[in-house]
Design a protein around this nucleic acid. Structure first.
Lengths: 204, 204
DNA sequence: TTGAAATACGAGCGATGACTCGTCTTCGAC
DNA sequence: GTCGAAGACGAGTCATCGCTCGTATTTCAA
């Protein structure tokens, strides 16, 4: 696998193709999950031959990595918008809201997100793209927690952040794959679960 | 696939082989997950040829189903032991303990459990074995909740049970794959998360 | 003892899917 | 306009894996 040097000169056409391929991958990942998504199907979805896909991405995982990078940026932007200075002193329910809402929105806007975030079916268990996304989320939560409760030891903050991320990941699928009529209800449960875990954890 | 009639006369030797194959499958599932576990590897682990495996199981999924059935029985036994009459009025933290402890123990005793319970990498999304295990857990939780808070509408009970199951599933991996020294700590977090969600949910 | 059913073997079939390679087309700097 | 580089093609390679089938061995009831 993978002979292509990492980077080469791209023409405008090439950059466009890469975006097309990432979009197609997002769709196919969303429909089938990472493992069952075939590179040929992704190429076909992008209206391109298999060979062209490999002109731009060393392998399937590199494609996932590019997508994950997109998602991390989207997440960062969404959260930046949701936090004005002083957010740390918000009532906890509202803080949870401001964390969760952007992530759900990123998810609905980028159908492939969940497939990468929740994937257990990667070649190597918890492969790079999944790890990156998890790290991004854990890091963000840890940052917010530290701002809110500066006295909490770093290790404890991290534990809480990891658990929160896993709770979120577990319910994410249910929320976004529910029919829109029920989505709000599941979202409420997700927030309740997070709040129920965080509220006592941040008091001690 | 699958020409063999579902059942035929088994000799003692055959029954033994089936148990061997299930044990081997549990190990390999635990190590690689369902998707990456190959039937040839399972046969080899059992010290048997691929053909022999298919003498007893129509296909890979039938093997998973047999395992899932085992696990459901183990779960039932473990919970039956944990609940004497009057459990419903236990303090909530202890009730959570009595639900969680047996499941963790079943998990540690049966390495394949998690692979089937948490699998997102099944042929069809959430295939039969996974669904069965989830249903067993959701059903048990719902039963306990109903006994404890009889006034709660059935639909609400089910929602709470589903969410609890997902929280459990999300943290299960972390708990059992942690080094034994850290396991207790993660287990505590798991119980906190469940308690934090359930406590307010059962009050209203 | 015997023969039919059950068990066991393992090379290999068939399908799938990631990835390649030789060839042709398009782009854009000069 | 020219020409080298970038882009595009898609049939085909190679490896993997679920599963089969022809044959050989073991069991056990009669």
């Amino acid at each position: 696998m993978a002979r292509q040097p990492a980077e080469r000169k791209r023409q405008a056409r090439g950059e466009r193709r890469m975006r097309q391929l990432e979009d197609a991958a997002a769709e196919v990942f969303a429909e089938l999950g990472y493992a069952r998504a075939t590179t040929n199907a992704i190429a076909a979805r992008a209206g391109v031959s298999p060979g062209t896909l490999y002109q731009f991405f060393r392998n399937k995982e590199a494609l996932a990595e590019a997508l994950a990078q997109r998602y991390r940026a989207a997440l960062r932007d969404a959260h930046d918008k949701a936090f004005d200075p002083g957010f740390a002193s918000l009532p906890l329910p509202e803080l949870v809201d401001r964390m969760v809402q952007p992530m759900i929105e990123v998810n609905l806007a980028n159908p492939g997100f969940k497939a990468l975030f929740a994937a257990t079916d990667m070649p190597e268990r918890l492969a790079a793209p999944t790890r990156q996304l998890h790290q991004a989320v854990v890091g963000k939560i840890a940052e917010v927690l530290t701002a809110r409760v500066p006295d909490l030891p770093a290790a404890r903050v991290r534990t809480i952040a990891v658990v929160s991320t896993q709770i979120f990941g577990a319910l994410l699928g249910t929320v976004v794959s529910a029919p829109p009529a029920e989505r709000e209800a599941w979202l409420t449960e997700l927030k309740r679960a997070l709040l129920g875990y965080l509220e006592p954890a941040l008091r001690s």
